[in-house]
C-alpha cells in the first residue's frame, strides 16, 4: 500500500488556542477515513492546513511523497487533492448548472478563454450528467441559494469531484441535513467516489454514518489525535467515549449551525 497523504508533527496555534498539536497521519491510497471529534477539536483546521488555506505553525505535509508546504490551495487542488466545505462554498448568484459549468471550465484549463462562451453545449451536457449522477437535476436552473441544504452540499462535493482528484477531503458532508436524508446523501457521494477510485477522508458527527462507510477512524480532541484505527476499536476506546462520542447509542446530532 502506498501512502498518499502524510503529515509530520503538524502544529497550528491561533494565539493561545492550540488547534493542532503534533498531528502525525498517514493515509493510504484507496482508504476511506472518517474523522470524528467534538466542536472545536481541530478537524476543519486539519483540512484547511492540508489544502493550503492555513499555514501550519510547524510541521510537514507530504502529498504523494512530495512536500506541499507553502503551496496555495489552487496548486494543491491541481495536484489532485480536492475538498468540500463545512458550509457549502458555491456561487450564490448563479444557478446550480452554472456552478458546475464554472467548475468544468476550471478543470479543463487554468487559463479561461477571453472570447469563446463559457456555456458551451458540451459543458452543459456534461454538467447535466453530473447533476443526474448526484440526483440534483431537478434543481438545474435554481439559484443555489434557493435549494435545500442537502442539495447544496451535494453540489459542493460535485464541484470538488469535477477536477478528478486522487484524494477528496469532505468537511461534514451531512451537516445541516436531516437524519433520514443523511444516508441517501452519503450513498450518492460514496458511489460517485468509488467510480473514480478516490481516497476519501470525511469529517462526520454521526457515528452511524461513520461506521457505515469508513475503514478507519481518526478521533480528534482539542487539537490532538487521541485514537486512530479500525472503526470498531476506536469507537470502543474509553477515551474516545469519554471525550468525543459521549455515551452511545444516543446519536449525536450534526452541528448544522456552525
Amino acid at each position: 500500500m502506498t501512502c498518499i497523504l502524510e503529515t509530520r508533527s503538524l502544529n497550528k496555534e491561533f494565539g493561545a488556542v492550540i488547534a493542532a498539536k503534533d498531528l502525525n497521519v498517514q493515509i493510504n491510497k484507496g482508504e476511506v477515513v472518517g474523522v470524528i471529534g467534538s466542536n472545536g477539536a481541530g478537524k476543519t483546521t486539519f483540512i484547511n492546513m492540508v489544502t493550503g488555506y492555513l499555514k501550519p505553525t510547524r510541521g510537514e505535509i507530504l502529498f504523494n511523497g512530495k512536500s506541499i508546504m507553502g503551496h496555495s490551495p489552487r496548486a494543491i487542488t491541481r495536484a489532485g487533492m480536492a475538498r468540500s466545505f463545512q458550509v457549502a462554498q458555491l456561487f450564490p448568484e448563479m444557478t446550480v448548472l452554472d456552478n458546475l459549468i464554472v467548475a468544468l471550465a476550471a478543470a479543463e484549463s487554468a487559463r479561461p478563454s477571453f472570447l469563446s462562451p463559457l456555456r458551451s453545449d458540451a459543458r452543459i451536457a456534461r454538467a447535466e450528467e453530473i447533476l443526474k449522477e448526484f440526483g440534483v437535476d431537478n434543481y438545474r436552473d435554481s439559484l443555489v441559494t434557493a435549494v435545500p441544504q442537502g442539495a447544496r452540499k451535494l453540489v459542493d462535493i460535485a464541484m470538488a469531484l469535477i477536477g478528478n482528484p486522487q484524494m477528496l477531503l469532505l468537511d461534514e458532508p451531512t451537516s445541516g441535513v436531516s437524519v433520514d436524508e443523511k444516508t441517501d446523501l452519503m450513498d450518492t457521494v460514496m458511489n460517485a467516489v468509488r467510480q473514480h477510485g478516490v481516497t476519501v477522508l470525511f469529517v462526520e458527527h454521526d457515528m452511524d454514518v461513520v461506521e457505515r462507510y469508513v475503514s478507519r477512524v481518526l478521533a480528534f480532541y482539542s487539537g490532538e489525535i487521541i485514537a486512530d484505527g479500525e472503526p470498531a476499536a476506536v469507537l470502543a476506546d474509553q477515551q474516545v467515549r469519554d471525550l468525543v462520542t459521549g455515551h452511545r447509542p444516543t446519536t449525536k446530532q450534526g452541528n448544522g449551525a456552525s
Binding site: 489544502t51 489552487r74 448568484e93 467548475a103 476550471a106 470538488a160
Partner: peptide, 17 residues
C-alpha cells in the same frame, strides 16, 4: 463569468484550481 465567480466566492474559485 469566472471574474463574477470571484466576486461571489473567491475561496471557491481558488479551490477550483
Amino acid at each position: 463569468v469566472i471574474c463574477e465567480a470571484v466576486r461571489e466566492n473567491e475561496v471557491r474559485v481558488e479551490y477550483l484550481g
